[in-house]
């Protein structure tokens, strides 16, 4: 039963990290909102509407960052069968799906006044919509089988195949002539925006990332405890039933030695 070794260690470390991640999130997003809404000046071209950038870009950044994490976790789960990797992948999916929706909705709210339309089927918008469907597919597939291990494997393969979409999203604004503007932060050395706008944007992006860490820890802990509960229930059922009883469970669980 060495498979419980790593989750046990994760529970210890994650419990220690959690309050710091949550505190940092509140601090970074609070400061970012203040600087972005009250201190940063209006844009010379887009007026006040550009302030959507402070929630739109961090959401889009997380949509890609969370998917990358989910794909790495899926690779680790498939290759090394690390018990935490599958837990991490499952915890990532709803967070990533939420931020993909937020990126699409805030982008739409920005596109309407600036482009004159809520939606266009250009490369950037379409590829991000596909990203959202990949998240939904992962969630559906992970729960589609009676055997959780089979669901995890199928979902992990989907996450890896779908990873091809991540560079497509990233470079879509360079490869195709899209309506979407190119990256705001392309290189830190020569940024395309003024520091008074750049600093709140960076604070929000880092704050959204620590938010992701916070929620990821909460969801991973819940998933690990859920698995522990399932294992304990299986053991109790086996203890109560006769040794020949057909218990539909993992072979790792030892058979009841002496039914009393």
């Amino acid at each position: 039963m060495h498979r419980y070794a790593n989750p046990a260690r994760f529970m210890r470390y994650s419990g220690a990290i959690l309050p710091f991640a949550a505190g940092l999130t509140a601090l970074l997003i609070g400061t970012g909102l203040y600087l972005g809404l009250f201190v940063a000046p209006a844009d010379y071209q887009q007026g006040e509407s550009y302030r959507i950038i402070f929630v739109h870009v961090p959401s889009a950044w997380l949509a890609l960052f969370v998917y990358t994490n989910m794909a790495i976790a899926s690779a680790v789960a498939l290759i090394w069968k690390h018990p935490l990797a599958d837990v991490a992948g499952r915890a990532c999916a709803p967070i990533g799906a939420a931020f993909t929706v937020l990126a699409l909705v805030t982008g739409s709210l920005w596109g309407k006044p600036m482009w004159g339309t809520w939606w266009v089927w250009d490369a950037r918008l379409t590829s991000v919509l596909i990203l959202f469907f990949l998240y939904l597919g992962y969630i559906a597939l992970a729960d589609a089988f009676d055997d959780p291990a089979r669901g995890a494997k199928a979902a992990a393969i989907l996450a890896l195949v779908g990873f091809v979409n991540v560079p497509i999203i990233k470079y879509s604004v360079d490869w195709w002539n899209t309506l979407h503007q190119p990256a705001t932060i392309s290189q830190l050395g020569a940024p395309s925006i003024h520091p008074s706008m750049m600093i709140p944007l960076l604070l929000m992006a880092v704050g959204f990332t620590t938010y992701f860490v916070t929620v990821l820890i909460l969801r991973m802990r819940a998933e690990i405890i859920g698995r522990k509960i399932r294992t304990m229930q299986l053991l109790q059922v086996q203890k109560k039933s006769t040794p020949s009883a057909n218990v539909d469970g993992p072979p790792a669980a030892p058979a009841a030695e002496s039914p009393s």
Binding site: G47, S49, V55, S59
Partner: peptide, 15 residues
């Protein structure tokens, strides 16, 4: 928000 309130605030609210 310089006339863009109907776009900016819903964006912040939904996030």
């Amino acid at each position: 928000m310089g006339g863009y309130a109907v776009y900016v605030w819903p964006a912040y609210a939904i996030v």
